[in-house]
């Protein structure tokens, strides 16, 4: 899977990976997301910023249909992944989520060993034919998450025994091991200290070579550091979307300007 994505990257550096049109999300009666249109590029880090409750996490969860697990949530509109409507009745959310991985706000390692945590995805999706291949995927993913050197001697120990920053990198390794095409990250650094945050940010930059990364963050500095594209959400609307440099230096909308200069949010 790694090989195929790499050949693609040479051909289509700026392809549109995900395109959303008129996306509406309702939680019961609450209109949480209004008319969102956005095109997310392949091999790019896209940051979603905005004040709490603005709908950025909600939109992120639409991209891999995690909102399906919430009974009262309903999604309208159209989201296409590589041109294919992911809310089409024939699309199985399980297969979709194998392609669109997700890392959550709080590190959530499974109550298994470090090795089994990373091997979980490859095992359920049958990505390896034998133990040697699986070992290779696990090592590659842990190296990718900058965790290999810290855990290589204790792969059999429980993942829950790691520190917070290590747990979050373990969760990233776990997501990377399933060889996704898109990686969604919902405030992945909010529970981490500055050093661990730095490591994760470095990692995000490397991951961009393999697939497109969408990150929700509360920290504008983080958005500026890691992303090439930034989308600003406010009260359920996508207010402004563009190159990160443009959003932070010459925002078009007065609300964006107010937010990045710290006057709202």
């Amino acid at each position: 899977m790694y090989d195929t994505t790499r050949t693609e990257s040479a051909v289509s550096q700026q392809d549109i990976k995900i395109s959303a049109r008129n996306v509406q999300v309702y939680y019961g009666d609450k209109h949480a997301l209004k008319d969102v249109n956005v095109d997310i590029q392949d091999k790019t880090v896209t940051a979603f910023i905005g004040p709490s409750g603005c709908g950025k996490s909600t939109f992120l969860r639409c991209i891999n249909r995690m909102n399906d697990t919430i009974d009262i949530a309903s999604v309208k509109g159209e989201i296409r992944l590589d041109g294919e409507d992911i809310y089409d009745r024939r699309v199985d959310p399980v297969q979709l989520r194998a392609k669109v991985g997700m890392v959550f706000q709080k590190p959530n390692p499974f109550p298994k060993s470090i090795y089994d945590n990373v091997a979980y995805g490859p095992r359920i999706h049958g990505l390896s034919r034998n133990k040697a291949e699986l070992d290779e995927i696990v090592e590659k993913s842990l190296r990718g998450a900058a965790l290999w050197n810290e855990v290589k001697d204790r792969l059999a120990e429980p993942g829950t025994g790691l520190s917070g920053g290590q747990q979050q990198r373990l969760c990233i390794a776990r997501a990377v091991a399933t060889a996704p095409e898109v990686l969604l990250m919902d405030e992945p650094c909010s529970a981490l200290d500055p050093i661990a945050t730095g490591q994760v940010e470095e990692l995000i930059d490397q991951l961009r070579e393999q697939f497109s990364v969408v990150i929700v963050t509360h920290s504008m500095q983080q958005a500026a550091r890691v992303s090439q594209k930034t989308a600003f959400f406010h009260l359920g609307n996508l207010v402004e979307y563009g190159a990160t440099d443009d959003i932070f230096t010459k925002p078009q909308d007065s609300r964006t300007e107010a937010y990045i200069s710290g006057r709202i949010g």
Binding site: R97, A98, G101, F104, P111, Y120, G121
Partner: peptide, 22 residues
């Protein structure tokens, strides 16, 4: 914790795999 279920579902496991393995 729901976060464990989310984590497993987010990796593309089916609900039954999530229950059995996580």
């Amino acid at each position: 914790p729901q976060s464990l279920r989310d984590g497993a579902l987010g990796l593309g496991s089916t609900p039954s795999e999530t229950i059995k393995q996580v």
